[in-house]
Simulated scan of single mutants.
Amino acid sequence: MPKFSLERIIDAKRESVFKIFSEYENYPKFFPKHFPSIRVRSVRNNVSVVEEYLRLGDKEFLIMAKHVSDSPVSHEVFVIGGDAKGSIFKEKFLELETGTKVMVEVDFKIKGKLKISSLFGKNIFENDYAKILDDFVKIAEN
C-alpha cells in the first residue's frame, strides 16, 4: 500500500534528536494528538514491544509494534499486530555540521475500509505522517 519517504533537517545534535524519536514512552506527553496512548509491553536490550494508539489525520490505529534502536544511528518500527500489521517505519539520523538530517521511510500496510480510502487519497497518509514528523522537529529544536 502507501510507501513514501520524508526528510527533515533539524537544528539539534544527533544524540538529542535520536532520543526524542526513540523514547516512544514519552510520545503521549509530547505528541498527544498523534499518540494518545502508549504501553510498553517488553524491553530487551535495544528491542521493545509496545502497544500504541496512533492517529494519522482523522484515522485511528491500534497497533502492536516492535521498536529496534541503534543509538544514535537508526530507529525502526515493525508493526507486528493490530491495525496496519506488516507496516515498517525506518528512521535514520545523519549528523551534519549544522544539525541532524532525519530520513524516514514508511511502508504502510492498511486493510479494509482504510485501504479503499487510501486509493482515492493517494498522498493522505504521507501528508498526515509529515505533520507528525514536523511536530517531532519542533520538539527536538526546543
Rank of each mutant, 00 (worst) to 15 (best):
R44G: 02
H67K: 14
I110G: 00
S69I: 04
K111D: 03
S117E: 07
F78P: 00
A65R: 07
S74R: 12
Y27M: 08
F35Y: 14
E76W: 15
S22Q: 03
P72I: 09
S42G: 05
G99V: 05
E76K: 15
K122C: 04
E51K: 15
L94T: 11
P28D: 02
L94F: 15
P32M: 14
V40T: 08
I110V: 13
K66G: 02
V49A: 10
F35Q: 04
I116W: 12
K29F: 06
P72S: 11
F89H: 10
H67Q: 08
V79G: 01
K122N: 04
N46A: 09
S117D: 03
L56Y: 12
V47H: 02
F89I: 15
E60G: 07
H75C: 07
T98Y: 15
K66L: 08
V40Y: 05
L56A: 09
S69P: 00
G86Y: 06
H75S: 07
S42H: 12
S87F: 09
S22N: 03
S22Y: 03
K111G: 04
S117C: 08
S22V: 02
E51V: 12
K29T: 04
G81F: 10
S48R: 13
E23C: 11
E91G: 05
D70F: 06
P32L: 15
N45S: 06
E105T: 07
Y27Q: 07
I116E: 09
R44A: 11
K101F: 10
K109S: 02
L56T: 01
E91K: 10
H75F: 12
M103G: 04
V77F: 01
I63S: 10
V40M: 07
K113V: 11
S37V: 14
S37M: 13
S117K: 15
V106R: 09
E51W: 14
L54C: 06
S71M: 06
R55Y: 03
I63F: 13
V49D: 05
P36L: 12
F108K: 02
G99H: 12
E97V: 04
I20E: 01
K59L: 13
V104E: 00
V68C: 02
D83S: 11
G81H: 06
F31P: 01
R44S: 05
I88E: 01
V77D: 00
K85A: 09
L114Q: 09
